[in-house]
Write a protein that binds this DNA or RNA. Structure first.
Length: 163
DNA sequence: AAAGTGATCATG
DNA sequence: ATGATCACTTTG
């Protein structure tokens, strides 16, 4: 069963330690083990972009598990998310850190990811690999940068870091 | 501590 | 058409 078929919080936890494989148009292959993730879990989660329903931007969150959601934040940083769960149920996992790049904006710079991958499926350009590595420990904490969300959603322990 | 940066979305 | 709002990073 695919990791991304699980509910976002479970998928986020399971993705820590997996390897992101990025193949560039020129043939270069970049590999990076995931060290930090966050879950965004459906319309009921006020921190999730889709909490205000479908828009042109959030439409991709309603697509099937394995769809890639990339968007620009603060005018500068691309954010990489993997859509999880059933179609028409907007859930995603934000990749906040990989080995060699800590912070979501740095992850995309490191892997040369931009909006050209938005609304495409995990495939040749970007894929996941499980090499059997298991993190010694996975820490949980509240998500960051979501001060606009309801207090109970801010409190959810949906941030996962390799320890 | 605060600026920099631009797409997106809700207003008008 | 205009303005507020950001799943952040860097610099001082």
């Amino acid at each position: 069963m695919n990791i991304l078929d699980m509910p976002a919080p479970e998928a986020a936890r399971a993705l820590v330690g997996k390897v992101l494989v990025r193949r560039l148009p020129d043939g270069t292959v970049l590999r990076a083990r995931i060290t930090e993730t966050e879950a965004y879990f459906g319309e009921a989660d006020t921190a999730c972009h889709a909490s205000h329903g479908r828009t042109k931007r959030t439409e991709v969150l309603y697509h099937p598990a394995g769809t890639i959601y990339v968007y620009l934040c603060y005018g500068i940083h691309w954010m990489l998310n993997l859509v999880t769960g059933p179609a028409d149920d907007p859930q995603a996992v934000l990749i906040r850190g990989v080995e060699g790049a800590s912070g979501p904006g740095r992850v995309t710079r490191f892997l040369h990811i931009d909006k050209s991958l938005n609304d495409t499926m995990l495939a040749d350009a970007l894929s996941l690999e499980d090499d059997g590595f298991v993190p010694a420990r996975i820490d949980v904490s509240p998500r960051v940068g979501i001060g606009y969300a309801a207090p109970e959603d801010q409190a959810r322990l949906w941030r996962f870091t390799a320890g």
